[in-house]
């Protein structure tokens, strides 16, 4: 009697059904949240963007990141900040000469490759600024960009 039951026992197998269910749910979630974007945006890890209800979408632009410790142009460190402030001299001068020079070069490079029939001004700066910065610092960077020929800005925000 016992031997018959022992013979009928199947070898132990892995129950993959529940695992498969879980993977299916994860897969659906990831497919829904997957967004194919033609513009690669790199959020600087040293800053926290302000939250906003703005709905405008990202477009390609020159990327300026202002963190509490440095200023980066397209990922390359340009200046050092001390607790979110530049040297006092820059505030009294109303511009940051190093940023002006670099952005002038960037503007020339953009205009050289830009389609002349394109009516929209391609010289736009995307500013990623830490939400803890003050307006004085933000405006100093915008003004420096303005002196280099950039007068349109897109302030990067985290959508609510």
């Amino acid at each position: 009697m016992n031997s018959r039951f022992a013979r009928e026992k199947k070898p132990a197998g892995l129950m993959l059904t529940s695992l498969l269910d879980m993977f299916t749910i994860i897969l659906i979630f990831l497919i829904v949240s997957f967004e194919a974007e033609d513009y690669e945006f790199k959020l600087d890890s040293d800053l926290k963007l302000p939250e906003s209800s703005a709905q405008s979408v990202l477009k390609p632009a020159v990327n300026l990141a202002i963190t509490p410790v440095d200023l980066k142009l397209d990922g390359k460190k340009v200046m050092t900040l001390n607790r979110g402030k530049f040297d006092e001299q820059y505030y009294s001068d109303g511009e940051i000469p190093e940023v002006v020079e670099l952005l002038k070069e960037e503007r020339e490079r953009i205009l050289a490759i830009e389609d002349p029939e394109n009516e929209e001004d391609p010289a736009i700066v995307l500013i990623q600024a830490d939400k803890g910065l003050d307006y004085q610092t933000l405006y100093l960077v915008m003004r420096s960009a303005s002196m280099a020929g950039f007068d349109k800005y897109r302030l990067a925000i985290m959508k609510k």
């Binding site: 993977f23 990831l30 997957f34 194919a36 405008s56 007068d151 800005y153």
Partner: peptide, 27 residues
Amino acid sequence: MNLFMVLIPFLLLGATFFHIGVIPTST
């Protein structure tokens, strides 16, 4: 399961868990 194991890491790399927008401004 093998297919899922390939697809999930691929989608995880491209997934966006936050949404960035912009405020257009000028000086």
